[in-house]
């Protein structure tokens, strides 16, 4: 049937060009948001996953993918898959490097194990967050909530510059 008409290689490379609307230096694929492209009988299904539940970029991402499909003349739709939940562990090493070059410190540790019951701890040992500008580890978190849901606000005590930190999720 028409499935032969869909050039999956071209589609993949076009989708690989799509960037996170809030961090335009990393692609949806590198972020782990673009999960799968399924070839159906005469259309495609593009599966994405939200980062944070309330991430306002998801609708933009949805529209960007539909526009890409349209430009390639491919019929298809976008579906959202929640499980397994997105985690910063899926971010590729190239994404981490690009974030750093952009001035956002990438997650410095693995996503916390959520199956464990939380117990009260007086002082949680601070994560060692490296300043993306000068590389110093002498930094402090000013606020655990930053410019977007996924980031914290930090300050470097060596170069005195404020910076964003992508929180482990």
């Amino acid at each position: 049937m028409q499935s032969m008409d869909i050039d999956m290689t071209a589609l993949h490379s076009a989708l690989d060009q799509l960037c996170d609307p809030e961090i335009p230096v990393v692609s949806l694929r590198e972020m782990g948001i673009l999960r799968e492209v399924k070839l159906l009988s005469n259309s495609v299904e593009v599966v994405i996953t939200p980062t944070y539940s309330g991430c306002p970029a998801m609708e933009q991402i949805h529209d960007d993918i539909l526009l890409t499909l349209k430009q390639l003349g491919v019929t298809g739709y976008v579906s959202t898959q929640l499980a397994p939940a997105w985690t910063t562990d899926w971010m590729t090493s190239s994404a981490r490097e690009k974030l750093k070059a952009y001035g956002i410190a990438p997650p410095q540790c693995q996503s916390p194990d959520t199956s464990q019951v939380i117990h009260f701890i007086r002082r949680v040992p601070a994560e060692l967050i490296e300043c993306p500008r000068c590389g110093s580890s002498n930094t402090t978190i000013t606020s655990a909530f930053g410019s977007t849901a996924c980031k914290a606000l930090c300050k470097c005590l060596s170069c005195q510059e404020p910076f964003d930190y992508f929180k482990p999720y």
Partner: peptide, 15 residues
């Protein structure tokens, strides 16, 4: 699936 996402966010709220 919703709970598995929510718990990650709730941990930051708790902190």
């Amino acid at each position: 699936a919703i709970a598995a996402k929510a718990i990650k966010e709730t941990r930051y709220h708790w902190q």
